[in-house]
Every structure is written in C-alpha cells, then in structure tokens.
Nucleic acid binder design. Structure first.
Lengths: 334, 334
DNA sequence: CCGTGCTTTGCAAGCGCTTACATACAGAGG
DNA sequence: CCTCTGTATGTAAGCGCTTGCAAAGCACGG
C-alpha cells in the first residue's frame, strides 16, 4: 500500500480511503490512486484490513450435514449473495453429535465472524445461548426461530397441502413417513410436518390412525424401511405422504420391490421437489431451496450493516407439483 | 492476551508460544497459562495471528457449481480434514462463465489463501498461470493434472468397465451418453470417458458406430434428451452407458416414458454410484467421492506444511455395482 | 481582509498477535 | 570456581492496514 501511496503521491490513508470507496476523496486523487494500484496490481490484504477495522467480513454458516441436498443448495444460494456483498463464508458441517457438542463447547466462531447463519439447525437452549455470546446477528433458515431472523416455509402447510391432494383423489387412509431426531436435528420440522398431516386429516374429515405414522431416520433407506412397515400391515394405506422427497424416493422403491405398483396400489407424495423428483415422477410440494439461501444471505447482509434490527421472519411460498406417483384411489368411481 | 499473560505472570510471548503448542515452554508455565486462558475463556484472534505470522491458514476451494452432487460431496470431504488441520475453507462457486472470467481476472484469492483446491476444474493455460501467480500450492481433484498435485479416478477405466459389463451380457450395440463442454468445464473427463467407451468396444471386439454416441448438456434432462435421441433411431442400441449417474437417471426415465422397459428393452449403466442410484436400481461404476475430498484435503495439508514438494498423483479405485438396470440382451440364449 | 464552515489530506496511534534477538538461568565439564 | 551449552522467558519491532484528529486549502459572506 505504501508503494501505491508513493506512486500516487499521497499518503496511505488516502489510498485506503480511495480503495474502500469512501466519499471524501477528490476525483482527481481517486484517479491517480486507482491508476497506481492497477499498475502495481495491488490488492489490499484482507487480513490486515480486518485486524485494523475490527470486522471479520466473514459469516459462519453452520449446517448439520454439508453434503446433503437441502443444505448444499441453501449454502450455494447464500454463498452467491454473501460473496457479492464482500463477505466470506466459513462453513461448519457438524456431522455427528460429537462434532456438534465440540462446536458449541469450544465455539470456534469466536472472534471469527460478523454473523452466523444456521441452516435447519434447531438449537437447544444452551446452544442458543452459546451462539448469542458471540454477540453477532444470527439468521436461521429452515425452521421457525424466535429471537433471531429467519427464513423458512410453512412446514405444516406443505403437509396439509399434500394430504388434501390425496384426499381429493379419494384416499381415505393415508400413511405418513416421518423422521425421528437424528441427534435432535430437524426435530421441529418433523414435528410441524406431522402436525400438518394431522391437520390435513382433520380438514378432510379423515380419522386419525396413529399406526399409520411411522418414524425412521432420515434418508432413502429410512424411506424404504418405513414403506415396508406400512405396506406389510394387514390393512395398508392406499396413499402415503413422506416428510421429504428423499424419504419418498425410498418409499417408491420399496413399494416397487414389494411388487406394488405406484400409483396403482399406493400413491406417494413427498415434500421438496428434489432435483430428481421429476425423474422419479414423484408428486411433491415444491419449496425453493436455493431461494431460501439467497434470502438468508440478504438478511445476513442487512443484519451486518444494521445490527440490532428487529428480528424479521420470511416465509417463502410453496406449491403442489402433481406428477405420476399419485392417482385416484383404486376402487373409486372411474 | 495481555490479560492472560498478566494472570499467568508471564509475557505475551510466552502465552503465544504456549497456546500454539510450541515445545520450548516449561510444563509449569504451560499449566499456568492454560489455566489463565481457560479462566478468562480466552481464544486467540485468528486475524491478528494471521497478520503477524503472514500465513492465512485458509485454503481456497474453487468449484464450478457448489450445489451439485459431486461437488458438494468433495467439498464436504475436504472440509472435514481441513478443519481438523486448523485450516479455513473459502469456497468459490463459479457458476457461469462470467463468474469464471471475473474470478480468474481479479483473482480474489490473492493474499487470502495458503493453498488452492480445484474441484473438477479443467483450467485453460491462462487460468492455470493466473492461479500459479498466487504462489501457493495447488491440488486438483476430479481430473488428471500436470504440474500440480491431483487426486482422481481412472476415467477411461470406469467406462471400460461399464462397456465390458454390457458386452459380457451379450450386448453388441452399446450407445453412449456423453456431455459437451458447458463452459469448457468437465471437458477432459468427458473426453477420457469417451475414450474409455471406445476402448471398451475395441477390447470386446465390437464395431464403433459414431452415431451411437450422443452429447448433451450435463444433468438429468440432458440424459432424457439423449436417451430419446438414441431410442428413436430405427436401429436403437440394446444398451447405453452414461457418462454419469445423473445422465443415466434421465435416460432411464426417458426410456420408461417412451414405453420401453429397463432393462427388458434397454440396459443402462452409469458412473458414480450416486446416493439415489440404489433407489433407481441403476447399475453403475462406483467412485468414492467423499473420499476424494478427504484425500485432496490431506494433500492440501501436506502441501501447506511442506511446500515445494514434487507433485503427487493419487488415483482412487472404482468398482462395478451391478443392479437391476442391466440384463442380458433380449434374444440371447437364456 | 478576516473569520467560518467545508472538503480533502496527512499524521500517527493503534488493531492483537508472532518472532528474531537478547537475556537469564541451570547444569555440565574442565 | 569458571566457562560453555542449552533451555526458558522477556523485549520490542513489526505484520499491513484503518481511523480519530488535526491541518491545510478553499470559497464565501461580512
């Protein structure tokens, strides 16, 4: 920077101001500085500038599992807008429980970030407090959050939509594939979607049969297991809603492997509109995952610029996508 | 840090040495310092330490498309080992061509990283030079690289395996779904896999029919389009290999939508063993994608610690996974 | 011609660490 | 008892920026 200053015939302070686009630099000076910087192909050292300005220009993004479809989409969406805003993104993938406890114990984000983005991470009370000792704004995606900004979808609503769709096709006995807490992650979402399922039954006047809800670990193989459990019953349901498309994929596969036709013998609907849902011909309720990341990124940027604003909540719309995995119930009037 | 020093009755230099685990600190002092740090719940400021030590402790990871299956897996694998080694990971998702040119023009990694990891990014000569002006070690995954470390699979070998499998089932006319350069990404991989396909034909004594190779953009819908093109021919092939599982998914879906049974009318094999390949019942050649990330991460760590070592190349094994999308050719002896 | 209020620029003190170098001290060897 | 090594610690000079404050320059009205 000193070289640039010398070449432009100004002080380093002026170079600094110019390069950061501060207003109180004359056009003439600005030109000389920019020229000098270009000639020397100089870029400021972000590290030095962070130390001096006491801002990290970094946001911590913590996800349960970076490689999963949902999370990688959200992260990709957020990455784009954060980079645009000049913020670095520090990814923490918590993976298993031990990584999670270590993370919240040691809080490696201390002194490293200006904001935190949690992606579908329900925080326990102590975890919540731990994060807040960082003293930086927090934005949550993927679930309802209190006390922080958040962007999410209507998790009960999506399930309600799914059930209504099936009921509209004449299905009277609808099973649900739910998940149980894998390390207490996702818990609230599972809960809300289950509530949506129940609400759907209520709205359409169907009876609740608790045995028709089976809970499995998240993932394709969980979906398979759940489907098998449902369809091996003496009185299997004629339709099944799954908490997510990946579970639904497993369900469809399991049904076919059991010799059942989808949707002939059983209809299946998922939630997400996963990249492969079209290929699987899966009826689903679409959510815009990348968009959630983008919006979360915008919230982060706002929060970094104006800390201490009222927590804002953004609920993104969803929509039913009807494909070939659902059909009128067998035996209904043609 | 000063507070810790005072509390432990030593100088900040000693605190620094202790906290970084340098050897020349007496056990007694070490204990006092650690205790003081713990009591004050002090952690060093990574930023200050980076400025003073002139090392960023950060590695730049550049990928074409962060949200895609392959890339998010590699990144997740690398993230784990880099974090373990105390290195931050700075993700650059290049997305489209304009982002890419901007990236290599401005080189935002300047003064930011101690190493670079490129994931399945064939670099043009100028791009290669640009990256090398950073003066840091570079590791490439997903393709053969010269002049830098790299971890990859045998891209011609996987395709050879796929073709041999089909030939072994009696297929004599095997189509291939290839990709064409979307922004010159992936180019070399596509090339090598096509070479593997041709090698497979040669080895099994099958004739080359250039029309049986169709190139489409990467993705499920590309696979669909390609399959339609192949199967609408007057003389469609009895089997198809796809450059990747995602293309194969599209191919299978397209076949079914055309009323063709898989594998009854046409066998399909992919490359990857994607998370959903099992559910799609797709025969494929498995590669360990997360493991590639892990190994690349290890290489990065080594390279950061011992810069200037000979470029190393690591070729990971692959294996054929036979599922239900391939069967003996119709009309062959039962 | 001088005081005022702007805008533009420079000065210099940090930001919170690391590290070369100097120092102190303890035991070993003569 | 004294020098010689080697280890343990302290001193202080940076690392490369930002920024509060002061100074300088300028136009303007009185």
């Amino acid at each position: 920077m000193e070289d640039v200053a010398r070449r432009a015939g100004v002080s380093t302070a002026t170079v600094s101001r110019t390069l950061r686009g501060l207003p109180n630099v004359s056009a003439d000076t600005r030109g000389r500085v920019l020229a000098a910087a270009a000639e020397l192909s100089y870029v400021v050292s972000p590290i030095a500038s962070r130390l001096a300005s006491r801002r990290t220009h970094t946001v911590g993004v913590v996800v349960p599992h970076a490689a999963r479809w949902y999370f990688s989409k959200v992260v990709a969406g957020a990455e784009e807008v954060l980079r645009e805003a000049g913020l670095d993104l520090l990814l923490y993938s918590l993976g298993d429980l031990s990584a999670r406890t270590r993370f919240f114990d040691q809080l490696p984000l201390r002194r490293r970030v200006d904001a935190v983005l949690t992606v579908a991470m329900p925080l326990t009370e102590p975890e919540y407090e731990a994060v807040h000792t960082l003293g930086v704004p927090v934005v949550a995606t993927g679930l309802r959050a209190t006390g922080t900004h958040c962007v999410r979808i209507d998790d009960t609503g999506v399930m309600l939509t799914a059930v209504e769709h099936l009921a509209g096709l004449g299905h009277r006995r609808i099973g649900m594939i739910s998940t149980y807490a894998d390390q207490s992650m996702w818990l609230p979402v599972a809960h809300e979607r289950r509530a949506g399922y129940l609400a759907g039954l209520a709205v359409t006047g169907l009876p609740v049969e608790p045995d028709l809800v089976v809970s499995v670990p998240f993932g394709v193989s969980g979906g398979e297991r759940a489907m098998r459990r449902l369809m091996e019953r003496p009185d299997p349901p004629s339709a099944v809603v799954a908490e997510s498309d990946e579970l639904a994929f497993g369900a469809v596969a399991a049904a076919r492997r059991m010799g059942l036709a989808v949707p002939g013998d059983v209809s299946v609907v998922g939630i997400d509109d996963h990249d492969l849902s079209d290929v699987m011909d899966l009826t689903t309720v679409r959510q815009e995952v990348v968009e959630q990341g983008v919006q979360a990124g915008r919230m982060i940027v706002r929060a970094v610029q104006h800390p201490g604003e009222e927590p804002r909540e953004l609920v993104l719309p969803t929509s039913l996508v009807v494909r070939g995995s659902t059909a009128p119930v067998a035996g209904s009037s043609p």
